[in-house]
C-alpha cells in the first residue's frame, strides 16, 4: 500500500495552484481531500507524476450567502457541509446526502468539490447537485467560467473541469416556495458506496405536487435526472397511487452497470422503488 513515487506541490493561492498544475507534467492529480485519490494511488491503480495538494489554498473553504444562491467552497469538508446553517436552510438535501457518505473519518477529510470533480457514478453528491441545478465555478488558464450541472458531468469520472482547470466553488440556487427533500440511499453496509440512490426535491401546492426534481445515483456513467418522472409528477395529485405511477418511469433512459452488488436489471428495479420512496417521503406521504 505504498504509492509509486510522485512530485508534490502545496500551493497557498488559486493562482499558485493553477501554476503548479501547469508545471506538473503530463499526469497531474489534484488532491482535494484524498477520499478516492489516496486509495487508488496506494493500490497503484493511479501513479500521477505530480500531486497538487489544495489543503493550504486560501478561500476555498466555507459556505456563504450570495443573494439568490448559496455558494459552497470546493474545499469545504463533508463534515463542515453537514454542520452548515445555510445549507441546512436552503439545501438540506445536500446535508442529508453528505451524511450518508462513507464514514466519519472520511467525511472529516473528504471535500464537497473533490467528490463532485471525481464524479464517481456511485458517489452521492453528483446526483444531488444535478437535482438542485447547481452551478460550477471553474477557473483555468483561460479565466473563470460557470458551468450548469446539466453540462458539468460529461462521462464516467469525467467532468467539465479540463486539464489545467480547478473547481473553486459551487453555487446552489435558493429555491422559492415550499420545498421538501429526501435522499434515499440503498447500500449493503453503512460506509459503502450507493448501489442506487435517489435525490428528490418536491414542491407542494394545494394538495398537489407542483414541481419535482429527481437525481439518480449510479444509474449510468454519470448522474441522471429522472425527467420522465419529473414530468409525470408535475401537477399530479399528492397521493401514493399517483406518485407510484409516476415513479414507474424512473428507470427510463438509464444505463446502469452490473457488478457484485447488483446487475443492471435489479438496479433499474431499485431506481423505481427508491424514487417512489424518496418522492413519497419528500411529499410528506
Amino acid at each position: 500500500m505504498i504509492p509509486a513515487p510522485f512530485a508534490y506541490a502545496r500551493p497557498t493561492t488559486v493562482e499558485e495552484a493553477l501554476q503548479a498544475i501547469a508545471d506538473g507534467g503530463e499526469d497531474v492529480k489534484v488532491l482535494a481531500g484524498g477520499q478516492s485519490l489516496i486509495p487508488v494511488m496506494r493500490l497503484r491503480l493511479a501513479a500521477p507524476e505530480t500531486v497538487v495538494d489544495l489543503g493550504k489554498v486560501e478561500g476555498l473553504r466555507g459556505v456563504r450567502d450570495d443573494g439568490d444562491a448559496i455558494v459552497i467552497g470546493a474545499m469545504t469538508t463533508h463534515s463542515d457541509v453537514m454542520a452548515d446553517p445555510l445549507i441546512a436552510e436552503h439545501a438540506p438535501l445536500i446535508a442529508e446526502a453528505t451524511g450518508t457518505v462513507a464514514d466519519r473519518q472520511v467525511r472529516h477529510r473528504g471535500t464537497f468539490g473533490g467528490a463532485l470533480v471525481h464524479a464517481d457514478p456511485a458517489g452521492d453528491l453528483p446526483a444531488v447537485a444535478l437535482a438542485l441545478d447547481a452551478e460550477f465555478v471553474i477557473v483555468g488558464p483561460g479565466g473563470r467560467r460557470t458551468v450548469p450541472a446539466s453540462e458539468f458531468f460529461v462521462d464516467y469520472l469525467t467532468t467539465a473541469v479540463g486539464e489545467g482547470d480547478l473547481l473553486v466553488e459551487v453555487r446552489v440556487p435558493k429555491l422559492s416556495g415550499e420545498w421538501s427533500m429526501r435522499y434515499e440511499k440503498f447500500n449493503r453496509v453503512a460506509q459503502a458506496w450507493s448501489i442506487v440512490a435517489v435525490a428528490a426535491a418536491v414542491r407542494r401546492e394545494n394538495g398537489r405536487i407542483a414541481e419535482a426534481r429527481i437525481g439518480l445515483t449510479n444509474m449510468g456513467p454519470t448522474p441522471l435526472r429522472a425527467r420522465q418522472v419529473e414530468e409525470a409528477l408535475a401537477g399530479a395529485e399528492a397521493t401514493a397511487e399517483a406518485v407510484a405511477a409516476a415513479c414507474e418511469r424512473a428507470a427510463e433512459g438509464t444505463e446502469p452497470s452490473s457488478d457484485l452488488n447488483a446487475q443492471a436489471d435489479y438496479r433499474q428495479h431499485l431506481a423505481k422503488v427508491l424514487t417512489r420512496r424518496a418522492v413519497s417521503t419528500a411529499a410528506g406521504l
Binding site: S36, P39, V40, L43, R44, L45, D120, P121, A122, G123, Y156, L157, W193, S194, N218, P221, S257, S258, D259, L260, N261, A262, Q263
Partner: peptide, 19 residues
C-alpha cells in the same frame, strides 16, 4: 451467482484486481 465482471471497488469505478 453474483455478477463477477469487474468490481465496483471504488464506487462505480470498475477496477481489475491487480493490487
Amino acid at each position: 451467482d453474483r455478477a463477477t465482471a469487474g468490481s465496483n471497488a471504488y464506487g462505480g469505478a470498475q477496477t481489475e484486481t491487480t493490487a
